[in-house]
């Protein structure tokens, strides 16, 4: 079973990388980009076959390591 984790910065946390990407898009002529927020995607290949159990385990992984919940939100998707 595969799981995909999205880690994003919380609202209100400054994202200098996102700001740099937005600036660069503007320089390339893409108008109307109000804001860019950069995050990461982590894909996991799990031995677990039960979706509910996998979700629970991956949530624990996010709390312990994959996200820093001081500044980041995460969401878990079972594929």
């Amino acid at each position: 079973m595969k799981a995909r984790v999205h880690v994003t910065l919380k609202n209100g946390v400054l994202d200098p990388q996102g700001a740099a990407v937005a600036h660069s898009l503007g320089a390339l002529g893409f108008d109307g980009v109000n804001d860019v927020r950069q995050g990461k995607v982590i894909e996991l290949d799990l031995a677990e076959t039960d979706a509910a159990a996998a979700t629970e385990t991956v949530n624990k992984m996010c709390e312990k390591l994959l996200a820093n919940t001081v500044i980041e939100n995460y969401s878990v998707e079972i594929l």
């Binding site: 946390v13 400054l14 200098p16 740099a20 820093n68 001081v70 500044i71």
Partner: peptide, 16 residues
């Protein structure tokens, strides 16, 4: 900071 012994987080420098 990551271990939780100190609060807050060190983010990428503002000028990248």
């Amino acid at each position: 900071a990551e271990s939780g012994l100190l609060p807050g987080v060190l983010m990428r420098n503002a000028q990248l």
